[in-house]
Design a protein around this nucleic acid. Sequence first.
RNA 1: GGGCGAAUAGCUCAGGGGUCCAGAGCGCCUGCCUUACAAGCAGGAAGUCGGGGGUUCGAAUCCCUCUUCGCCCACCA
Length: 896
Amino acid sequence: MTKTTELAPKYDPAAIEHGIYGRWVDGDIFAADVASERDPYVIVIPPPNVTSVLHMGHGLNNTIQDVLIRYERMRGREALWLPGTDHAGIATQNVVERKLAAEGKRRQDLGRQAFVERVWEHVRETGGTILDQLKAIGCSCDWSRTRFTLDDGYSTAVRRVFVQLYEDGLIYRGHRVIHWCPRCLTSLSDEEAEFRERDDHLYYIRYPWADAGGGTADGVVVATTRPETMFGDVCLVSHPEDERFTDLTGRIVAIPLSGVAIPIEHSTAVERDFGTGMLKVTPAHDPNDFDIAAALQTEYDTPDTMTPDARMADVPRVPEALRGMDRGDARMRIVELLEAEGLLVKVEPYRHAVRHCYRCHTIVEPRLSDQWFVRMRPLAQPALEAYRNGSLTFVPDRWGKVYENWLVEIRDWNISRQLWWGHRIPAWYCDEDGCDHITVAEETPQSCGACGGAVRQDEDVLDTWFSSWLWPFATMGWPEHTPDLERFYPGHTLVTGPDIIFFWVARMVMAGYHFIADRPFETVYMNGIVRDPQYRAFSKSLGNGIDPLDVVELYGADALRFTIVAGAAAGTDVIMDRTDLDATFAAGRNFANKLWNVGRLILSNLSEAPVPVESLDRSGLELADRWILARCQRVIREATTALDRMRLNDAANLVYHFLWDELADWYLEQVKPRLYGNMPGGDAARSILVHVFGTALQLLHPVMPFITEELWGHLPLEHGRLLAGTRWPVPDPSFDDEAAEAEFGLVQGVVSAVRTIRAEYHVPPSATLTAVVAPAGDTAARALAAERDTIHRLAKLDALETEREAEGIGGHAVLTDGTAVFVPLGDAIDVARECARLREELVRIEGQLAGVRGKLANDNFVTRAPADVVEREREKERSWGEQQETLAAKLRALGC
RNA sequence: GGGCGAAUAGCUCAGGGGUCCAGAGCGCCUGCCUUACAAGCAGGAAGUCGGGGGUUCGAAUCCCUCUUCGCCCACCA
């Protein structure tokens, strides 16, 4: 039954990865069983945009999730990784609009219904590509549960939530200044309007007197960065305690160029030190001005002087010559006109942060309009509490503070978008004159809930995040009480990037507590951001990104995954250089190749299934056997601990070093004669190799699923069961063997010492050498006796002596336990040089000795440091003291 | 204006009071095509752990401060 299929001599990831994913799917490995008795473990995927293609950020994010889910699955939990995509309102609509633009059309040309159908077409065509791409990097999602945020069931959840929040008084319609993208032609939430630094100007503009008072100067000077909004000014305000302006109260000035008369008022909102201390108030085009105006005694209009696409409006307040001009052109033109009229007092350069659309990066225009808002403060309280009482933790924790800070400062959420692609707002307005009732309902109402008149639905759709925040439970069938929801909510781990803490993470927590009365997950694992060597985030426009699928093709998915996992601690950014893929992915690529070759060596020396290690006669095992078995137990424990602590990079590196530095470099080398020569112990070695290598494959499987599965399939273990479905290894304490670890450590020490000496003295590989070793104690003596042949072979010695006195010229080394190694080199080297070397070493030892003695002479140290620490220092003093004497003796012997 | 974080080998980064602690990968130097692997083997060089101060018997690690970078938040127009 042993599969002795030969492995291809060369590791070719493309050749093996192809078939393996299908075997997992056929084996039904990824499907979570709602009826099982196991302890569930749930991750919901951060749903990528339905039209997006895989980029390295997805690669990083999803690899981490896959490591966690595969680990927990192997640990025996009912692991559910729920996949899906997001309709991504603005982003997707923009994509389709761009396609239309290529045909010379606008969405308005199609009309709403046809346009939405067109988007659906696009989504059906190219949508979900990214989910297939996730398979290429090995993601073990439960595809049977794939969801889309515009699915029918999901839409039901969205409407239920809207209605419920409305009835709770947590959703309301508000008239205020919001962020407006003049290119996307929609309002945006605070989070969607990102600040970016910009070099602008501060214009000092004189507003001339429009009353008979005359005065100190020819008017009042106001500083503004946005002269183009001045036609919407309703008044000027100064601080009530600003003495410069006290006698101007009630005076009237004229808006330059338009001549509209406006009064001067007071407001404590004015910063006296900024500009001239006099502020122009433009309630329709600045949220602060809106508040200032609202707080004044006088009831002002809110004149809107701009069109939705940010052109100067065709209204009386705007001078005719400017109407229809783009806001940027208008600004420049206005400045020219002001200058011509002598009303431009001065212009200062001014750097400030300006909000931009997070989708198209157009400068956002503050705009007065009616929008739907969610009252956030009540929702935020439980989310805040969850973090503060530890129900919700962040890895690394510092992100928790960011989360907390946002929740404390939270403001209401504008959820309506003037788009066509998305969940239409379930609110209906009454057409009857005089009836302003709004009917909010899950199902389309026949008539107005108040007067029975005809109704029409709100034209707007909901912010895409208004559906995303329901993801952890809407994907499980909520508002129905489904078995999935019962069993898999709350989930456990969320893996995401810090850039969407506010957009998504915090809101999911709020929704979880509000609608299900429980947290959506317990741990938020923050992955870093993938950057280029100049620390710039990967972006399409910079063209600095790396396509993960290119990497898969070049080096394999496992190489990509290992590089990512081993190279990135939680929360740290990952630097990748697209100009040097070889170097960037060397760690993973080289390791995958190593794994393959270790597998080849082992498999090529198996003729039939060896007996399980448990059945081996322990008394017949060699030191190296006991050593590698003990090391294996250790790596099982350490890797498990690392994964439990979400130290994925530690886990990956631990197994890497076990497999490469211990199994491949030492055990395999030790065991070769037994394998090749049909020597005694050969069968034991085969058993141990299969066991230890198999264990390493299991430990590595979450990180490198393809190659480990392939190699596992060739090993005579578990009757052909898929590795992905095996149970995580548990340490077998009967293999623990600290003595063997210490003893084999000495063997390694002797071999390395001789190799170093050989290299240091440039002894030709062919030269025959003898080593004289003085074991420091019984342990060392036992080790040397047990592994004499190993030492001979690996250190390329002809003889190993323990009786002879070390004398003459040669290389020497002292191991950590004090065992001395001496390699006589006879006439091969010159005495003067050797003397110099010995002296140098003596100086070094004496220096260290002085340090230790100084420490031990310090009463504070001796009395207050822990006993074992002090003891270790004493040990050093003894050991180095001996070395000092040995060196001195050698120098004398050489006559230096 | 607030908040958070980073600075460790040529590069990218681990390590968060004593041992494992001066580390890994890549790069570099020397010698090896030793039949699992040159994507490899063996050996090696390389860092006063950003500067300064403090706490401590003891600091890469804790505190303060400075410098330089990065990120987030923020209604001085």
